[in-house]
Design a protein around this nucleic acid. Sequence first.
DNA 1: TCTGGGGTCCTAGGACCC
DNA 2: TCTGGGGTCCTAGGACCC
Length: 403
Amino acid sequence: VFVSAAVASILHADLDAFFASVEQRDDPQLRGRPVIVGPGVVLAASYEARAFGVRSAMGGRRAHELCPDAIVVAPRFSTYVRASRAVFAILDAAAPTVEHVSIDEAFLDVRGLEAISGSPAEIARRLRARVRQEVGLPLSVGVATTKHLAKVASGAAKPDGLLVIAAGDEQAFLHPLPVQRLWGVGAATAQRLRAHGIVTVGQLAALPEELVMGMVGRAAGRRLHALAHNRDPRPVRAGRGRRSVGSQRALGRGRRSPEALDAVAIALVDRVTRRMRAGARLGRTVVLRLRFGDFSRASRSRTMARPTAATAPILTVVRSLLAAERETIERRGLTLLGVTVTNLESSVTGAQLELPLDGHDPAALDTTVDAIRDRFGTSAISRARLLQAGDRAAPWRQPGDEG
DNA sequence: TCTGGGGTCCTAGGACCC
DNA sequence: TCTGGGGTCCTAGGACCC
């Protein structure tokens, strides 16, 4: 399906400096002042702190040098999750198709809502006002014909702004921007383009696709060329599920005994499997992430015969992958250990098989969907909707399979 | 600047299958 | 004995994003 909206009706909603804004909301003394959510690496910086050059992912020491007067507060993740849920409740009520991208970001497709809710710009204005009034947070919104441009627009609208790129104005907006503003262009790709004298989106757009592919690789080149021309066929997808669940822990420089490492592994596996069970998800591939004493990285993975969310089999795999690296770890030291489970599928396939697929009885379907929600929680329902819509990509177990 | 924690997608080679 | 043409799945690593 190639979705290309004739009018700008895709919204990208993005909470400004999310963690830092929540802290300023809850402590009036922090308002108007540089706030860093830390300590250690900067998780979020208020706009007052950003004015001094402080950025997220920056080391705490560097941040202190740039902005010695910043107030550093410890993160309160459960408060952020609550705030995020309150915002998403408002977004979910505003459009039938809302794609949750991360804790502070979402796409909305508001096509066809003109008669009920007004123009996309009016919907965006109302969303911003409601989030401000009801949750107390600044929300920036970009409106455009594609997801990519809506995201670029919300970025340009920040802080606390709204920017609508009308159909037909795309190239004029896009072309003067630096290439880094394109989705998927980071330091490495920007450097490669700069080596060819390409700095702006306009310069990139002037090149034939083959040339761009030669500079940055096949897939990336194709995507960049399309984005520079504002071609982005990705539709807004309701409630897209996550593809992996992981947890990791930095270990510092000190040496750890195999027993201490095993204790960390147990804690990581426990965290990951708990989250999988809470989300009714099973996984088949276990990835062990390692970072050595010199900060080089490696990953080791193993795919199991059957998907699971149980602690024991996943811990067994993690232990065996870890044991195979023992010598390397002893030689080079270990500064980070992580466990990620991918190849996820929903654990509710048993219930899915009970759907009356050939009956087309809406009442029976509703009953089944309600039953699934009661047993497995709302996270299972997005999957059921996808299947209802005929999503062939969703895993579909055969009746003879176990589980 | 000595370094968090959570993710996504792509590439490439090898094993294996018909 | 040598080899076509099509494919899937797994593993490891890299770039990127918030």
